[in-house]
Nucleic acid binder design. Structure first.
Length: 503
RNA sequence: GAGCCCGUAGCUCAGCAGGUAGAGCACCGGACUUUUAAUCCGGGUGUCCUGGGUUCGAAUCCCAGCGGGCUCACCA
């Protein structure tokens, strides 16, 4: 395989690219260098250097390494060529280190070839750690090896890659030249790692449930449809893992969680991507109060873990994530921000909402009127963390009813910066009531609500075997990452956000 | 899906009262043996997003399309 690859594919691929890609002068120069290297017997993609140190090691352990021989590998990002002694910047995953190459040390031939390198080439270098006259810790190169020839010029080092479209489409370039973008994804990784470790530390087990669902469930959303050929049946990309995780409660796992993608066939915006990452966690013998505590603990804990503080800055706004977060019922929140008292006008909710100018779908019920009023009039005010609780039962088909008011549920949604960050409730474990709720959803669907839930007999059957009382929680991980990384768009925290294909 | 804005060199951006397309970095040639956005001398490398239209003449004005951003709608 390797032999086949090395015996002439360079020519083929060069021809291919020449035929299929527009080659500008800058690329032609690099291709010319590549050709000359190959003619000279070099193998520009076969370097074998294995680094002994990272750039950061050399800086942080300078006292110990001074005068020692080290081997590093990375991408060449700057070249300052002088007469007989040149400098270069080598970047690896840990950072930058300066190289110093002197003709008298490496010899005429090596020196000349070094000067022929292009910015973007991957090289391995062996040399001695020292400090320059100007005080910069550097590597005095004894030998170097080309590891991978770069055929395209990188974006400019000083301004980076500003074009938002290019940053998303060619994320690798964004990561190379924009350190702040790189930082966002490192933080994202740390946030998710923290959440995972925290849950495991609390005795949760991590599980994986299907992404392909015969019946999409667990949320109000339009699914992506697909098809399984061998089974000859339609399948849906999951809109939520909820119903499978609850089957695991039935199965005797008391604390489970899943971190993974959900897919929703809906609009794209600065806060919505068709596929996004959620955490869902379920705990038996717990209720929504317990899950609220878990929520504020995980989010504030993540902030403290990765930022060192629970007080964050988001787009010029200070947000204090320190628990406990206030609890505020949805009806009370509406009363506070709009003056509308739905409890005082029970039975006339739809009418009252419409009179207040709230946009409602035709055929909306009381619960939808209340929810719409909240979303259209209250949400935007909820900047500091707050748990909105006690949602109407009509819009919470999987949540347990309040014992003291069966029209409301033991549900919560934390809001931060006006965004719904999570959603949780005491899980409905009464199979009779669950069946009624599904039937209600089916009626809504038949009446034209294409986001209403489907009847899920398989899930009901599981509930009929008995599901322990449990609290459930879903957190929109991307939005948490946006908040903690001060990112204005969800696309800034997703490595490859969805884009239309290039024309 | 609607409204507003954007699309010029590899990158970052000027140019838009219509008159031969510019700068910085990058790149190419030369000088330079401790520079660091190295410096100095010389060189502009382009499908001005695409397609029509107006005009003697369009990067510039008009129309349509494509792609992107923001706001709104739906949603998390």
């Amino acid at each position: 395989m390797d032999d086949v690859r090395n015996n002439g594919v360079f020519d083929d691929s060069a021809n291919e690219l020449a035929n299929t890609t527009e080659i500008n002068d800058l690329m032609a120069v690099r291709r010319g260098k590549l050709e000359r290297l190959i003619q000279a017997g070099e193998r520009p993609y076969d370097g074998k250097t294995v680094p002994t140190h990272l750039a950061r090691d050399v800086i942080t352990q300078f006292e110990a390494l001074n005068g020692q021989t080290v081997t590093l590998a990375g991408r060449l990002r700057a070249l300052r060529i002088h007469g007989g002694a040149s400098f270069a910047d080598l970047h690896d995953s840990s950072g930058r280190i300066q190289l110093f190459v002197r003709r008298d040390n490496v010899g005429e031939a090596v020196y000349e070839s070094f000067k022929e390198l292009d910015l973007g080439d991957f090289i391995g270098v062996r040399g001695t750690v020292f400090r320059t006259k100007r005080g910069e810790i550097s590597i005095e190169v004894e030998s170097y090896e080309l590891l991978s020839k770069s055929l395209r010029p990188l974006p400019e080092k000083w301004h980076g890659l500003r074009d938002i479209e290019q940053r998303y489409r060619r994320r690798y370039l964004d990561l190379i030249v924009n350190p702040e973008s790189r930082k966002v994804f490192i933080l994202r990784s740390e946030i998710i790692a923290y959440i995972r470790q925290a849950l495991v530390g609390m005795g949760f087990i991590e599980v994986e449930t299907p992404m392909l669902h015969p019946i999409p469930g667990g949320a109000n959303a339009r699914p992506f449809e697909t098809y399984h050929n061998a089974l000859d049946m339609p399948l849906y990309m999951r809109i939520a893992p909820e119903l499978y995780l609850k089957r695991l409660l039935v199965g005797g796992f008391d604390k489970v969680f899943e971190i993974g993608k959900n897919f929703r066939n809906e609009g794209i915006s600065t806060r919505h991507n068709p596929e996004y990452t959620s955490l869902e966690a379920y705990q038996a013998y717990a209720d929504y109060h317990v899950m609220m505590e878990l929520t504020e603990k995980l989010i504030s804990g993540a902030a403290k873990e990765v930022l060192g503080t629970a007080v964050i800055q988001y787009q010029g706004r200070e947000i204090d994530l320190t628990p406990p977060w206030p609890r505020l019922s949805m009806l009370e929140a509406i009363r506070r921000y709009t003056g509308i008292d739905f409890e005082a006008c029970a039975g006339r909710e739809v009418e009252v909402a419409r009179e207040a100018g709230v946009r409602l779908k035709p055929g909306a019920n009381a619960g939808q009127a209340i929810l719409e009023t909240f979303e259209q009039r209250v949400e935007e005010h909820l900047i500091q963390p707050v748990f909105i609780t006690d949602h109407p039962v009509e819009v919470s088909p999987l949540a347990k009813r309040r014992a003291d008011n069966p029209r409301l549920t033991e549900r919560f949604e934390p809001y931060i910066n006006g965004w719904e960050i999570a959603n949780g409730f005491s899980e409905l474990n009464d199979p009779i009531d669950q069946r009624r709720r599904f039937e209600e959803q089916v009626r809504a669907r038949e009446a034209g609500d294409d986001e209403a839930h489907f009847m899920d007999e398989d899930f009901l059957e599981a509930l009929e075997y008995g599901m322990p009382p449990a609290g459930g929680l879903g957190i929109g991980i991307d939005r948490v990452v946006m908040l903690l990384t001060n990112s204005p768009s969800i696309r800034d925290v997703i490595l490859f956000p969805h884009m239309r294909p290039r024309a």
